[in-house]
């Protein structure tokens, strides 16, 4: 079965992750720092601009931003890089047999590793801005894995589609840009009038649940809503099963598309 094949090719998974994590910045002066600079710049821009736009920004707005933007960047990069991974590896796919699922899987795993490294920055912000940290940090890996699963599911699905319909990558990037506003990443849910339509829509968004959980763990030092997390986990699991099934169907034609 497929899991057996992935196990057989585990060295390939390992080397792919190694190439993604270390290879991306080998030879550049700032090295791995580049994976943080982008989200940090975003934090900077929003932290400066939004308090003026929003009048009455959240307490500890900068920490609020960081605990939202960095997890979102993790999700966004995994989905957007996975979408193009089949196309970018066209030459290898045409010439060698290996279980193709390794490609989006390695992107998710390397994204997870990059995220854990950036969590150091989040913790640093918590400490610097006086929010402090607590044992609740222990929940972060759990939330990250669930978030990673949903990113993997979407990334895998889109990668298969992008092999056939090549503007998928533009559509995905556009949706991701818009989607950032669909969850309380840079704003608080309270900016919407309570019991309004839009508040409930945003609230239902699984990404909202995930963001809330991260904030509970990093900022508010509370145990995250386990029921909500459980729901998101189940949803992600179902998405993964679907995405992998579709991917397997579509992968037979990959080599002929390029």
């Amino acid at each position: 079965m497929m899991l057996r094949e992935i196990y057989n090719y585990r060295e390939l998974l390992k080397t792919s992750v190694k190439k993604d994590v270390r290879g991306r910045y080998k030879g550049s002066v700032l090295g791995v720092l580049w994976s943080f600079i982008n989200p940090l710049l975003q934090v900077l821009v929003y932290a400066i601009v939004f308090p003026y736009l929003m009048k009455g920004a959240a307490d500890h707005y900068v920490v609020y931003l960081v605990t939202g933007i960095i997890p979102w960047t993790f999700f966004q990069t995994v989905v957007s890089q996975s979408t193009i991974c089949i196309k970018s590896n066209a030459s290898v796919i045409k010439k060698v047999y290996f279980p193709r699922i390794v490609l989006p899987l390695s992107i998710c795993i390397s994204g997870l590793i990059n995220f854990f490294i950036s969590c150091v920055i989040v913790v640093a912000f918590c400490l610097i801005f006086g929010v402090g940290i607590s044992w609740h940090l222990v929940f972060v890996p759990l939330i990250a894995v669930i978030e990673g699963m949903s990113a993997f599911a979407l990334g895998t699905f889109f990668s298969a589609v992008d092999a056939y319909i090549q503007d998928m990558e533009h559509i995905v990037n556009f949706i991701l840009t818009m989607a950032m506003y669909g969850a309380p990443i840079i704003y608080e849910l309270t900016i919407f009038p309570t019991h309004s339509k839009i508040a409930s829509i945003v609230d239902i968004n699984p990404m909202t649940k995930i963001m809330n959980s991260y904030r509970d763990a990093f900022m508010y030092h509370r145990i995250p809503d386990m029921a909500a997390l459980g729901g998101v986990f189940l949803l992600s699991l179902v998405m993964c099963i679907f995405a992998v099934a579709i991917f397997n169907r579509m992968q037979k034609g990959f080599a002929e598309q390029f």
Partner: peptide, 17 residues
Amino acid sequence: DFTGRENIYFNASIFGM
């Protein structure tokens, strides 16, 4: 950007080793 030695692992792992 990786050494010959490291690339041996990259290449051989694609072949399933």
